[in-house]
Nucleic acid binder design. Structure first.
Lengths: 346, 346
DNA sequence: CTGAAAGCGCTTACAG
DNA sequence: CTGAAAGCGCTTACAG
């Protein structure tokens, strides 16, 4: 692996100075056509690839941005990653993708590393601390040391532009859908209750109950703690073994709902006859499940695109209001898992 | 956003030279304990984050690697991304993830950009050209200008370490499974037939037919061309409308199989009674489909981990044989979509 | 153990 | 239009 050619190599071969070669190749400054042609030819022969590290050093800014999400294997985040990449790459930016696994220490380490890379900005879905606030350490990074956009999760008190979906409204709508079908005991499986997105969804759920004068029973809301299939299984199982189990179940995350399906199958229950189900985030296979799954679909791709757009805007003219909060609408996609009207008391 | 502190700021505050500050913080060279303490304290006060660009410039090598996959929204690739990140991050490396969308020009642009970032290596799932070889342009990059590991797809003639799964054997096994259940007309939906992985799978399919003296009927093998849900739908529809349609269908990709399910549902056919189905790559919801889906499961995570491991090894001691080809075993997970034994002639 | 100086590969005033 | 020189923030011989 021999070293790549430098501007000096190109200049030498073209018989010009490094400065001129740089001007010709970098597209800045004026260069005579003949000179430029010689330089371009030399660059091609040498297979010249400009060193962006050197450029960034000199310009004291990079065209790299960081993207921190919880778990790239969750299709919701995968779509965000794709949207962000697509949006920024057109502007010559590169993205470093990081995965926190919902661990706050990982997030801090990753954010810190992005700073070392002198990224021009960070788009992050922040991990919740126990109190629901940013950890002190990340607060010292986001917004103050690097341009930041929050995605998927708002943080109270943080003065940082944020893109989320309308968690409260969507959960309210989903719950209301259950109620209209006659459900009175509605359970919820929450993935890590300190996450802002989860707080909003539970809030929406409570509102719908309140609207219809159904008493909120906190034993019907289970925090899965971890946000994965296994945790969804455990939490759902707990609800199914409740003294008076729910007839409808709202599962507030993609991965958790697979666990819920596992638990329901294990108990030999039928969907929606024995237990109706609504999941969060659509996925390709959802219409093809044994009972096609009703879900709240968040506009993941749009969230990513808009977050990227805002960050790019901040990088160029800094004119974004730090308290900007864009809330995108989610959609309740009704399939059969919630369809059955129930009768009698539950 | 004020500029981040530099080593010079730290040195000044600690009353030492830049060189000494660098030694204390960078962990190279010897520094007296008292001096080190002063420097560490100063760094903390200033919230010092070393500039890795500057370090890379000086050392003429980065701790960044590039990862190029076709589509990060495909769970197969998402798992690879996660595995690679997890593996390299422990060694202080950062990864730049790129998405080609199966477009060869995109791949070239991305690889070129990774070179500009002076990545220490690239792990890539190379896009096939029409001839199944590397494009001339990418061949000039992979292996010669930057350490490279191929993942998921081998390229004939390339002297580059490669990690794949055993596509031939797995397809053979899957096809044999169909044959043993009595199927004689077995269709295959291929995603872009020039992809090395697809060629292997079709080869395995042919071998199984040959073994059992079933004539290969090329009209039963349809190239979906694109590798997405819509393409899978179109290709499957074509097969279902065949003059003598298959009774068993092998769908060679994750996304295509969703399209296949759409086509099958549209025709009102039952799985496995009317058409038995085997997909490629497992996914969370597969056991919960209307008819739980039999799949060939590739060890995606292991592929990513091993690719990362090989690349790291190449970076350190360069002792990896360029013709190394590690082939991991896939597993046929039998669920109900293939289960039905068929009788009579088809 | 510590410091002065050179240099990684660019870009950018400053001259001409 | 072109070039010489300085400098981005580190690391690394080289002295001491």
């Amino acid at each position: 692996m021999r070293a790549l050619a430098t501007l000096e190599d190109v200049a030498q071969r073209a018989g010009t100075s490094v400065a001129t070669a740089g001007r010709a190749l970098g597209g800045y400054g004026k260069v005579a056509v003949a000179t430029r042609n010689r330089i371009v030819a030399a660059a091609r022969q040498l297979n010249y690839h400009p060193n962006v590290l050197a450029r960034s050093m000199k310009k004291r800014s990079t065209a790299t941005i960081g993207l921190i999400v919880a778990n790239i294997c969750n299709p919701f985040f995968a779509r965000i990653v794709r949207a962000v990449e697509t949006a920024v790459i057109r502007h010559g930016n590169t993205v470093i993708v990081c995965d926190t696994d919902e661990n706050i220490q990982n997030e801090l380490d990753l954010a810190s590393r992005l700073l070392e890379h002198r990224v021009g900005g960070i788009i992050v879905s922040p991990t919740a601390s126990e109190t629901g606030e940013l950890s002190r350490a990340t607060r010292e990074i986001y917004g103050s040391r690097v341009l930041t956009v929050f995605i998927d999760r708002a943080v109270k008190g943080a003065k940082i532009p944020t893109i989320t979906s309308d968690n409260v409204t969507a959960a309210e709508e989903a719950t209301r859908h259950f109620i209209q079908l006659g459900h009175k005991r509605i359970g919820a499986v929450v993935g890590r209750s300190t996450l802002d997105s989860m707080i909003g969804r539970v809030e929406g759920y409570r509102r719908a109950l309140l609207e219809h004068r159904i008493t909120f029973d906190k034993s019907l809301v289970v925090d899965a703690v971890d946000v994965d299939v296994e945790a969804g299984y455990r939490a759902t199982k707990k609800l199914l073994e409740h003294r008076r189990p729910p007839t409808g179940l709202l599962v507030l995350n993609n991965l958790l709902v697979i666990g819920a399906l596992n638990a329901i199958r294990e108990k030999g229950l039928l969907i929606p006859e024995d237990i109706a189900l609504i999941g969060w985030d659509d996925f390709d296979a959802a219409p093809h499940l044994q009972t096609p799954l009703t879900v709240v679909e968040q506009p993941a791709y749009a969230m990513g695109s808009i977050a990227a757009e805002q960050l790019l805007k901040m990088r160029s003219d800094e004119s974004v209001d730090p308290s900007l909060h864009i809330v995108l609408k989610s959609t309740l996609i009704i399939r059969e898992s919630s369809e059955k009207r129930i009768s009698g008391k539950s």
